[in-house]
Write a protein that binds this DNA or RNA. Structure first.
Lengths: 205, 205
DNA sequence: ATACTATACGAACGATCGTATTTACACACG
DNA sequence: CGTGTGTAAATACGATCGTTCGTATAGTAT
């Protein structure tokens, strides 16, 4: 029993590829119909698989939901956070982060807009592992914004006495507000309003 | 056939009372489990009725959802908007409106926090009459904030050149952000942050 | 008295839900 | 080569979904 079982297993590779394909659909279905509206049967049909096949890959529905949250998290990091980390820390990085988020939401990386904004409202009042996973992801995001903002403050590029946590709250609220309003009004105007608001919140000292 | 059929109909009165009782439960169930998670069977069980009885009162599930949105709207108006309209127009009325909203959300008038914030994220990507009803309610709310803010601007109690629509967007985003964060973190801290943010947005000229 | 309407129930419908079981096949490894 | 394990389908299970139906009761209207 090797501690590191050789990665060259045709079955594992095949299963991983299947999981990847199913997940690609799952995150989009969930971003539209919610994590609860994401059903094993519909997921199987849309990926040309049997229900049993999906169950074999992910187990119970709750495990499927947790895997979906994790997959969405990876996409979010790849699209929003990682590119911002290539920008020098400070105000520029903070601006890049927020721009990335607006592009991610407006560009409908997930069919239903921001996956986590929808998930947070859906499971926010329903205790359980799925809610915890979503709450963790949101806390991570909030903390990322706070940390990057703090660095901009420390660098003297924002008001010296500014409260990074307060700024993170306001900034994330504006972002989510744009996402929500845009979906409900089928308009991109809220994103323009968000950019105006953010310009006011994130400006040189 | 009178144009105005007399209101004194024992059957109507009995039905209206039944509808009222069922709706009282429906809005709370929906605020926790969503408009889709609101099932006829569960609603019947919780109100000690048969499924057929609930169907007789509301018709299809979609009609039940529409009635639920309308009932929530009335409660929202009663708790948030109406009390603010008793305050003299201007900055005071705007502040009263926002305070009422925070009390309404934090006080959990609906078990799951703001009914419309949850409903908007749930049905925002699902076209249909229910989405339209929620969008209407949200547009009304946004317009109410904008109108009251405009009056404060006209009265010279806010920055003269301020854009009421932009202010309404920012203010509602902060409110929803507090509601969402509070639910996910089981904390009232977001409401304090919201009050700080609103104090900055809504301050005398 | 009669016809009509508005609740309300209880039972059943077909569909779909999540899950479990069984079987078949592909590949790894001793 | 044979044994074990992971992938996947097929099938079936009980539960619950939304809806429909038939029936009963109560109140209104003619």
């Amino acid at each position: 029993m090797d501690a590191m079982t050789t990665a060259a297993d045709g079955r594992r590779a095949r299963g991983d590829e299947s999981r990847r394909q199913v997940m690609e659909r799952a995150v989009n279905l969930a971003s539209v119909g919610g994590l609860d509206g994401l059903t094993i049967g519909a997921l199987a049909t849309e990926t040309d698989r049997s229900k049993g096949g999906v169950v074999a890959l992910f187990g119970t529905k709750e495990q499927l939901q947790l895997a979906t949250v994790e997959a969405a998290r990876e996409i979010f990091i790849e699209r929003v956070i990682a590119p911002a980390l290539t920008v020098p820390g400070g105000l520029d990085r903070l601006r890049a982060l927020l721009d990335n988020w607006l592009d991610y939401s407006q560009g409908r990386v997930f069919a239903g807009g921001c996956f986590f904004a929808a998930a947070a409202m859906e499971v926010g009042a329903q205790p359980g592992p799925v809610r915890d996973a979503v709450a963790d992801a949101m806390a991570d995001w909030y903390e990322t914004v706070r940390r990057i903002a703090q660095r901009a403050i420390d660098a003297g590029e924002l008001a010296p006495g500014a409260d990074a946590a307060q700024l993170a709250f306001e900034v994330t609220a504006i972002l989510e507000g744009a996402n929500s309003a845009s979906r409900l009004t089928d308009s991109v105007e809220p994103y323009a309003r968000a950019r105006v608001a953010l310009a006011g919140l994130v400006q040189p000292a």
